[in-house]
């Protein structure tokens, strides 16, 4: 079987949906964060596949930007989760209830 662009796109869409499902369904902030990373990397996979099959390297350049930005986002995000844990002794979304009407 020849592996073509469509196969990569299907995998990428599946990864993206799995990531989104993780964000929506999981209750632990760290696991939610993994889901978010999965969403970004699904996009990276799609970009690299498009780049390969369209013979246009700009897509791979964009992947580098996304990886860098995602690293910055992880650094900030994890430090926020740690700060929250120190305050609340918990990293569960159910405990994020101090802001209400």
């Amino acid at each position: 079987m020849q592996v073509g662009l469509h196969h990569y796109l299907v995998v990428s869409a599946l990864l993206f949906s799995l990531g989104l499902l993780g964000v929506l369904a999981r209750r632990n902030l760290l696991v939610i964060y993994m889901g978010l990373e999965l969403m970004l990397n699904a996009a990276n996979l799609a970009l690299v596949a498009f780049s390969r099959y369209n013979a246009n390297l700009n897509g791979q350049v964009m992947v580098f930007f996304i990886i860098t930005v995602a690293a910055a986002e992880v650094a900030v995000g994890l430090s926020l989760i740690v700060a929250l844990y120190r305050k609340r002794q918990s990293a569960h979304v159910e405990d994020l209830t101090s802001l209400k009407l």
Partner: peptide, 28 residues
């Protein structure tokens, strides 16, 4: 303040996930 930051972080990261995937499809 921290709780607001975490909420902004999660929802903001989901939004950037959508945006990046959208950009990938546009590029494709």
């Amino acid at each position: 303040s921290i709780e607001a930051g975490v909420k902004y972080l999660i929802l903001g990261a989901v939004a950037s996930g959508f945006m990046v995937f959208g950009t990938a499809l546009i590029f494709g």
